[in-house]
Computed example of a mutant assay.
Amino acid sequence: MRQYCNRCSYPQKTCVCKHVTKVTLPIEVVIIQHPKEAAHAKNTARLIGLSTAQARIVNAADTEQMAQLKACLQPYASILLYPNDGSEALEAVEKQTRARLQQLFVIDGSWKQAYGIVKQHTWLQSIPAYHFLHAPSTRYRIRHTDIEQGLSTLEASAYAMHCLYGIDTGPFIRLQAAMQDNWLGPSHHQRKTVK
């Protein structure tokens, strides 16, 4: 029987605990996770939770948790990382907006899954949406995507915190790298190229 680490929940052979550096964030990062992502051993959302106490993961299929999020929503103190026709560049967020923020919502899933979550939970559309204008190249190499500028959930969350508050993305990126270095899955899961 495979033994799992009690802290990081990865198998003990691929434990990442020694690579965790705790980061304090000025706002809460709420990751709304598609239920299929929760089952993926390669998902990066749980790495965010290991890195900071200011992050939480909500299962998009959990109607009670989603209802609680909706009930506590303060649209003018929240932003949604979700590129769409009306979204604005996160890199250009004004100082006044940053000062009033309390929550960053990030959707964890494929583009199709994220679209479905926003359509299903229409209240998310009341939150100002933002996209990246100058996203860094991904360093996430163990999941496939056809999106050239596609970042992992961890990379997107870390870069958002960097854009908003100058938070160092290093602890997050190093933890993701350690998880990938420990990955024991099949080689065909690796991306062909990573810039």
Score class of each variant (00 low, 15 high):
residue 98 R to T: 15
residue 165 Y to M: 14
residue 172 F to T: 10
residue 148 E to K: 13
residue 167 I to E: 02
residue 167 I to L: 05
residue 136 P to F: 05
residue 185 G to F: 02
residue 187 S to R: 11
residue 186 P to I: 05
residue 125 Q to P: 01
residue 118 V to F: 01
residue 168 D to F: 15
residue 137 S to K: 09
residue 102 Q to A: 10
residue 115 Y to F: 12
residue 113 Q to C: 06
residue 173 I to A: 01
residue 108 D to K: 05
residue 177 A to G: 03
residue 165 Y to P: 04
residue 106 V to R: 02
residue 135 A to D: 00
residue 131 H to Y: 11
residue 193 T to V: 09
residue 105 F to I: 05
residue 164 L to S: 07
residue 99 A to D: 13
residue 167 I to T: 03
residue 129 A to V: 12
residue 132 F to K: 09
residue 115 Y to I: 02
residue 103 Q to E: 02
residue 101 L to N: 13
residue 177 A to F: 08
residue 142 I to L: 05
residue 118 V to D: 04
residue 165 Y to S: 12
residue 104 L to A: 00
residue 135 A to W: 01
residue 145 T to P: 14
residue 187 S to D: 05
residue 128 P to F: 09
residue 130 Y to A: 06
residue 193 T to C: 10
residue 119 K to D: 06
residue 125 Q to D: 02
residue 107 I to D: 05
residue 194 V to S: 11
residue 95 K to R: 15
residue 185 G to P: 06
residue 162 H to K: 05
residue 164 L to R: 08
residue 183 W to Q: 04
residue 130 Y to K: 03
residue 159 Y to G: 14
residue 182 N to G: 11
residue 115 Y to H: 05
residue 97 T to K: 10
residue 151 L to M: 08
residue 181 D to N: 08
residue 148 E to P: 01
residue 128 P to E: 00
residue 103 Q to W: 00
residue 115 Y to W: 13
residue 164 L to V: 11
residue 174 R to V: 04
residue 110 S to W: 07
residue 149 Q to W: 04
residue 135 A to K: 01
residue 126 S to C: 08
residue 107 I to F: 10
residue 170 G to M: 09
residue 107 I to W: 15
residue 143 R to A: 08
residue 127 I to K: 03
residue 194 V to E: 07
residue 119 K to S: 07
residue 179 M to T: 00
residue 131 H to F: 12
residue 126 S to P: 03
residue 137 S to C: 08
residue 146 D to A: 06
residue 161 M to K: 03
residue 182 N to E: 02
residue 179 M to K: 00
residue 140 Y to K: 11
residue 133 L to T: 11
residue 169 T to R: 15
residue 96 Q to C: 08
residue 141 R to K: 10
residue 152 S to M: 02
residue 104 L to I: 04
